[in-house]
């Protein structure tokens, strides 16, 4: 049993590497393997300076969003939780849109700071809305998040219509990695390291709070501390992802469920698999977005939602079959 599961992680890694290489080489123009090393040619520069940041960003954002989804599902004991349900995406989005309209310079620094600010503010409000006398209620968290994010999306939509500027925000609203440069790539890499470190450090504690509160408290868990850590990881991962890639649907909700299909163990055993799967999935979508309608690009956010939705329908179908059989 254990061997099989390791094979799953290893095959995901190999798949990821293959996809990574192919994503670097294929696109509007296809390059050959030898271009990787032809340091004088223009192709070399395109691969390493334009394609690498883009592909790496897709890989990292995929991993972060999938992890954020799984974390949220674990700590809220709710299998259909998704970071977008907490309004974090919408908050980051709205902050970006407002910032742009107010004339904040559109540099990486401002973009990321705005996204974090919006994400944290939104989360703070949603968090306060879901506090009860007995502490944070996971159900209320999801409910108030959903409602509040609808509210924020409405405002964002309204603003972009009023200012006739929806075209400029297309990238946030739809999601994609076309303009990603080296700075953003480094930002995501650092974020990934921080988040991976935190997750590895707290993996066992997070697994325990997947039980109900009284059980995990009795087992010796410091629920409030661990839940806060988990939520901080979720906010960091989501806002970083939105700042660079815009809104990308499905990953947080769908990838953990797909991995669950292959490996039903608890959080500490599956989070690496989930991150790898998220990477592979988003790199694949990004590659498709570039290849399917050459020389044009398809919107990545839409593509991942369609692909992911298809996957999910298949998954639910399989599940229901399993019940009948």
């Amino acid at each position: 049993m254990r061997k099989n599961r390791n094979y799953f992680l290893i095959s995901l890694c190999i798949l990821g590497l293959l996809l990574f290489m192919n994503s670097l080489l294929l696109g509007v123009h296809n390059y050959a393997l030898s271009d990787f090393f032809a340091s004088q040619s223009q192709n070399f520069a395109i691969i390493w300076q334009l394609r690498l940041p883009r592909v790496l960003a897709a890989a990292i954002v995929g991993a972060l969003l999938a992890l954020a989804g799984k974390l949220l599902q674990t700590v809220s004991n709710n299998p259909i939780a998704d970071p977008s349900l907490l309004g974090i995406n919408s908050g980051a989005n709205l902050a970006l849109i407002c910032g742009t309209i107010l004339g904040v310079p559109f540099t990486l620094f401002w973009r990321v700071s705005l996204a974090f600010l919006g994400a944290f503010l939104t989360f703070l409000i949603v968090f306060l809305l879901s506090m009860t006398r007995r502490g944070l209620s996971p159900t209320r968290l999801i409910l108030s998040g959903t409602i509040f994010s609808g509210f924020l999306n409405g405002i964002a939509y309204g603003i972009s219509i009023l200012t006739k500027s929806s075209q400029r925000f297309r990238n946030f609203l739809v999601g994609g990695f076309s303009g990603v440069d080296c700075k953003q790539m480094w930002l995501l890499l650092i974020l990934l390291l921080i988040i991976l470190g935190l997750t590895i450090y707290f993996a066992r504690d997070i697994t325990i709070i997947g039980l109900n509160d009284q059980l995990s408290q009795g087992l010796g868990s410091r629920i409030v501390l661990i839940r806060s850590v988990a939520v901080i990881i979720v906010v960091l991962a989501t806002s970083g992802s939105v700042a660079v890639g815009g809104n990308i649907a499905f990953i947080g909700l769908g990838i953990p469920h797909l991995v669950h299909y292959f490996d039903k163990r608890d959080f500490k055993h599956v989070y690496l698999e989930i991150m790898c799967f998220g990477s592979v999935f988003l790199m694949f979508c990004d590659l498709l977005a570039r290849l399917l309608a050459r020389p044009f690009e398809l919107p990545l956010g839409g593509l991942s939602a369609i692909l992911g939705g298809g996957f999910l329908i298949w998954y639910v179908y399989r599940q229901s079959e399993a019940v009948v059989a």
């Binding site: 039980l211 109900n212 009284q214 059980l215 009795g218 608890d266």
Partner: peptide, 9 residues
């Protein structure tokens, strides 16, 4: 401690 309605995934 085993509470009244223990729940686990």
């Amino acid at each position: 401690c085993l509470p009244q309605n223990p729940q686990a995934p």
